[in-house]
Simulated assay, not measured.
Amino acid sequence: MAQVDPPRSGRSDNSLAWEYYDTPAGREADIVNVVRCRIVPAPKADDVPGKIVACFRPSRAIQSIADETAVLYSQLLWNQLSNSDDYSLPDLQQCDLFSYLDAETTEDVIFIYLQCEGWVVVPNSRKADTMSYEFLAINRETHARAIVQVKTGNTPLDRAHWSTFPETVFLFQAHGVYTGVPGHNVVQLSPETIRGFMEGHFDVMPQSVQRWIRFAQRRTSAQMP
């Protein structure tokens, strides 16, 4: 992680992070545009959510991440890795934990939950062009097939629509926004169930999820008399 620092004191443009070094050494190195940063390495690969990783793939070396959840998580991670309070974070106890997990991370949590419940997720089925559902799962014992749909934000899930499918259907709406009457094949996963699973199976959660859970627990402890 990198945080932009202001330029060295004594410069006339010290309100700007960008510095221009048109010097013989700078021209020789072909580096005349300088932005000073504090850099803190992320200790584990899953400390960085997939949505952020995707923004650093070729052909762009760097780009803006237009996602509020990713920004909040970056601030949380920076505070923890730099042992600072550089960023003011919201009171998570007054909010829904799932508000701070992006869509891909939420899918990962459901992926892990189903595997712990005896369903083997087919990795190849988890593709962007699988338009109607997120992924396919197979029960280890019965070999039954199931499809999974996950929604974050306030996008509702229509249980009646999924009742027309021949397979078992697992539905998860991160804020419990469901419509319609579910059929016998529809399994509705509640946010409370999944949050309890996340806390009870903390050690198998991605690092990015663990950090949010720890943050929430510390806030709770600090508020206790």
Results as ranks from 00 to 15, higher is better:
residue 1 M to W: 06
residue 4 V to A: 15
residue 7 P to N: 07
residue 9 S to M: 00
residue 10 G to L: 06
residue 12 S to N: 00
residue 12 S to M: 05
residue 14 N to V: 04
residue 15 S to K: 13
residue 18 W to H: 13
residue 23 T to E: 00
residue 25 A to H: 05
residue 26 G to R: 03
residue 31 I to C: 09
residue 32 V to D: 08
residue 34 V to R: 12
residue 35 V to Q: 12
residue 36 R to F: 13
residue 36 R to S: 07
residue 39 I to T: 08
residue 42 A to G: 00
residue 43 P to N: 05
residue 44 K to E: 10
residue 48 V to M: 12
residue 49 P to E: 03
residue 51 K to A: 06
residue 54 A to Q: 04
residue 54 A to M: 06
residue 60 R to A: 12
residue 62 I to R: 06
residue 69 T to Q: 05
residue 72 L to S: 10
residue 76 L to I: 04
residue 79 N to I: 08
residue 80 Q to S: 11
residue 82 S to H: 11
residue 84 S to I: 02
residue 85 D to V: 08
residue 87 Y to S: 09
residue 87 Y to K: 07
residue 94 Q to E: 15
residue 95 C to Q: 15
residue 98 F to S: 01
residue 104 E to F: 10
residue 104 E to G: 01
residue 106 T to E: 01
residue 106 T to P: 01
residue 111 F to Y: 12
residue 112 I to V: 10
residue 114 L to E: 07
residue 117 E to I: 01
residue 119 W to S: 05
residue 119 W to N: 07
residue 120 V to R: 03
residue 122 V to F: 08
residue 128 A to I: 14
residue 132 S to L: 13
residue 135 F to Y: 14
residue 140 R to E: 14
residue 140 R to C: 11
residue 141 E to M: 10
residue 143 H to D: 09
residue 153 G to V: 04
residue 155 T to Y: 07
residue 157 L to A: 06
residue 157 L to W: 06
residue 168 T to W: 04
residue 173 Q to L: 05
residue 176 G to L: 07
residue 176 G to Y: 05
residue 179 T to C: 04
residue 189 L to W: 02
residue 200 G to T: 08
residue 202 F to R: 15
residue 205 M to G: 00
residue 206 P to V: 12
residue 209 V to K: 00
residue 210 Q to W: 07
residue 214 R to F: 05
residue 217 Q to I: 00
residue 220 T to D: 04
residue 222 A to N: 08
residue 224 M to E: 12
residue 225 P to E: 08
